[in-house]
Design a protein around this nucleic acid. Structure first.
Length: 154
DNA sequence: GCCAACGTTGGC
DNA sequence: GCCAACGTTGGC
């Protein structure tokens, strides 16, 4: 089992939205590194820290689970979508995604400030300066520690 | 293949 | 709103 951190802007789609719908296709990822994580490395059952970016304050707000195997992101074929990619074909899709399902919402947000200040989490990618990647791997130890800070037991 | 210009992310 | 980081694009 692997662990991840996925970023989302709460103004667009936050932890409350995931709780409401229960399950959501992670559309719109247009970064090859992030895509490769979903395409090649994620397995159903993997757990991810749900992180609010561009938020006040930013931080970890809950946990989501990989709900299925990767499949082509449908928005890349939709001319009306902002994620439309004219260079992608159904025969050779460029962008892949997985669905995430809601697992839990932390009782209180674990802010980025808290994460950065924690000596146990210095290796976490999201804590490092200038990381813009929207999906990053998280070590099992870091994952457990963030859950503990969020008051949740896996 | 290099690299300057440009666009985006995201914390502050 | 600013700006650092860094991915992408396109001219050469």
């Amino acid at each position: 089992m692997k662990y991840w951190l996925i970023k989302s802007e709460p103004d667009v789609f936050g932890i409350d939205d995931l709780q409401k719908v229960g399950r959501e296709p992670w559309t719109g990822v247009r970064n090859y590194q992030a895509r490769n994580f979903m395409w090649k490395d994620m397995k159903p059952g993997d757990l991810a820290i749900f992180y609010h970016s561009n938020a006040k304050p930013p931080g970890a707000t809950g946990i989501a689970r990989v709900a299925d195997d990767p499949y082509p992101d449908p928005t890349q074929f939709d001319e009306k979508s902002e994620y439309f990619d004219e260079k992608s074909t159904e025969q050779k899709p460029r962008w892949w995604l997985v669905d995430f399902e809601f697992v839990t919402k932390f009782a209180g947000m674990v802010t980025l400030e808290t994460l950065k200040a924690d000596p146990k989490l210095t290796e976490m990618v999201v804590c490092q300066k200038g990381t813009r990647l929207s999906i990053t791997p998280v070590s099992a130890a870091d994952f457990k520690h963030v859950c503990k800070l969020g008051g949740w037991k896996p």
